[in-house]
Design a protein around this nucleic acid. Structure first.
Lengths: 221, 221
DNA sequence: TACGGTACACTTACGGCGTAAGTATTGTCA
DNA sequence: TGACAATACTTACGCCGTAAGTGTACCGTA
């Protein structure tokens, strides 16, 4: 049949090609518009053909998350603080590039190989720097919580630049009497709406606070 | 008609009743099974009737998130550190009770009144304790990032108790040669799988590390 | 008491979703 | 050449959100 011959001439599908296309589609049009049909269309294929390469939609999402993980720099260098700092910054960058990913880290029971490799490298860096197992667990928990939480907040900001910020702030505050949320209003007026404000700058402030705290904890022990 | 008389005898719907039922349904059966049809069924009503009380499904989700926020204790007392600590613990409890909520804080452009009230109270506590506006912004960012991130990780743990933990760890590690992820294996064997382990215990460790860091930053300025 | 408006639950219908099941066409190796 | 494994295709089912329109019960006013 003509359709099938056409298919034969196409570059063949593979799990990697499917995942890559899905990530690109999610980046461009949002995770909600990643459906099997639309993904198939993007690949020049019917929806059901994708099932030759992913088990189901959950498997697709798991795979997409693992692709994201694979983009995060592994920690490197002998100085744990520098390595952790650099990894955190890379993670935030990657999660900013794929804003749909942060809410779907709920891959839960099925972490992919890149995910496992990443976690193993982080643990190895800390253990190699002399952290006890318990201290490693503490550091791992507080750092990852902070990174994911910051990325989550950043992904959910309803604005991307100063102009939008002003617009949104006006909208929200304008709905209420000026006195109803005085501290929110103050922060908006005297900080967020000032020229040069960028929420992203907060990331390294908090990160350094945590890294310094860890350093103190580890040297005090 | 009989059906309508029946409806008349029913306690009338209201936005609050709809939101409450939706939250309960999500808690019991997961957010994915909160559909307009199933929610209607839970309330003894057809799906379309819900549209008299919520604008659409997005509005429903926004409202559900605001219900969750309303359950978090507002900070109280004159000691900012105690107040922030207690609020953080309450937030984690609430987010643990409604695990579906953390990924859907993407209410983005439309925070509800409880959400705004909560944020305003947090800011007021810090400003009242003498934090500068900038320092308030730092504290707010690092604390909320940590709380959300921790809740996110906790919500995504594929296990709830020690038994499940062992089972999942075995499954994951069993898929690979023992040497493939040595540090992950070590952490699992010598820490996570030890009796008495509970990831939740990490929360206050990281929280206190951050609060101490903030205290040092604020007293040093 | 009668009446008009409002509130609100109902039915029907549409297009999109994930995916189970079955069919057809290829490229590969005996 | 003929059989087999891959893999793309079609069809169909029961969900989903929700636009549009219908009917009834209640309330304030005359």
């Amino acid at each position: 049949m003509a359709a099938t011959q056409h298919a034969a001439r196409r570059a063949p599908l593979s799990r990697d090609r499917v995942l890559e296309a899905a990530v690109a589609l999610a980046d461009e049009t949002g995770i909600d518009s990643v459906s099997m049909r639309k993904l198939g269309e993007a690949l020049g294929v019917e929806a059901m053909s994708l099932y030759n390469h992913v088990a189901n939609k959950g498997d697709l999402l798991d795979g997409m998350v693992d692709v994201v993980f694979s983009e995060i720099d592994l920690p490197s260098g002998e100085n744990w603080k520098v390595a952790m700092r650099q990894r955190a910054i890379s993670a935030r960058q990657v999660l900013g590039r794929h804003r749909w990913a942060i809410g779907r880290m709920e891959s839960r029971a099925s972490p992919g190989p890149a995910t496992l490799r990443h976690h193993d490298a982080v643990l190895g860096c800390l253990r190699g720097a002399g952290f006890s197992i318990e201290m490693t667990a503490h550091a791992y928990s507080v750092l990852d919580s902070y990174i994911y939480g910051f990325a989550l907040q950043e992904a959910n900001l309803p604005f991307d630049d100063a102009e939008e910020t002003a617009q949104v702030a006006e909208e929200i505050l304008g709905q209420f009497g000026a006195g109803e949320y005085p501290h929110l209003t103050e922060l908006a007026m005297e900080h967020v709406l000032q020229p040069g404000y960028d929420y992203g700058n907060e990331f390294e402030v908090g990160l350094d606070l945590i890294l310094d705290g860890l350093e103190r904890a580890v040297s005090g022990a």
